[in-house]
Simulated assay, not measured.
Amino acid sequence: MQLLLQDKSVTTTVTPAMSFLDVVWSALQIDPVDAGVRMIDGHRFAELAAGQTGPLLVAQCHANWVMSNIKLAHESASGDEPVVILHHLGLDDQKIVHTTWQNLDREIEPDHLTSIYIPKLAEPIAGEMAKLHNLARTLREQCPWDQKQTHDSLVRYLIEETYEVVDAISALDPDDQSTDEKFIEELGDLLYQVEFHTTIAEQQGRFSIADVARSIHDKLVRRHPHIFGDVHAENADAVVTNWDAIKQQERGEVTEKSVFDGVANSSPSLMYSTKLQKRAAEFGFDWPDSKGASDKIAEELGELRKAVESKQDASEIALELGDVLFSVVNLSRHLGVDAETALRSAADKFRGRFQSVVALAEQRKLDLTKCTLTQLDELWEIAKQNN
Results as ranks from 00 to 15, higher is better:
Q2R: 12
L5F: 09
V10N: 03
V10M: 04
A17L: 03
M18I: 13
M18L: 07
F20Q: 11
F20C: 11
V23I: 09
W25Q: 06
A27Y: 10
Q29N: 15
Q29A: 15
P32F: 04
D34T: 15
G36L: 04
V37H: 04
M39W: 08
I40H: 02
I40A: 07
G42E: 00
F45I: 03
A49G: 06
G54W: 09
H62A: 11
H62F: 11
K71I: 08
A77Y: 11
S78M: 07
P82Q: 04
H87T: 06
L89Q: 04
Q94G: 02
K95E: 15
I96S: 05
Q102F: 10
D105C: 01
E109N: 13
E109M: 04
P119V: 06
A122E: 10
P124W: 04
I125A: 00
M129A: 05
N134D: 05
L139A: 02
Q149M: 15
I159W: 07
Y163D: 14
E164I: 03
V166H: 00
D167A: 06
A168Q: 01
L172D: 03
D173Y: 02
P174V: 00
P174R: 02
T179H: 02
L187E: 07
G188M: 03
L190F: 13
Q193L: 10
V194D: 00
T198M: 15
T199L: 06
G205A: 06
I209G: 07
I209E: 01
D211T: 05
V212G: 00
A213M: 11
S215C: 10
R222S: 08
P225A: 08
P225G: 04
T241K: 15
Q248L: 12
E256N: 10
D261A: 13
D261Q: 15
A264R: 13
P268F: 07
L270D: 00
S273C: 07
L276W: 04
R279E: 12
E282Y: 05
D289K: 01
K291G: 03
A293I: 01
L304I: 07
A307M: 08
V308I: 14
E309C: 06
Q312Y: 03
S315I: 11
S315N: 14
L319I: 13
D323G: 06
V324S: 02
V329W: 07
L331N: 02
H334V: 02
D338I: 05
A342R: 04
A346F: 13
K349C: 11
Q355A: 15
V357S: 10
V358G: 02
L360G: 10
L360M: 05
L360N: 05
A361S: 14
A361K: 08
E362C: 01
Q363N: 08
Q363A: 10
T369F: 03
T372V: 08
E378C: 10
L379G: 09
L379V: 04
E381A: 15
Q385C: 01
N386Q: 14
N387W: 08
N387Y: 09
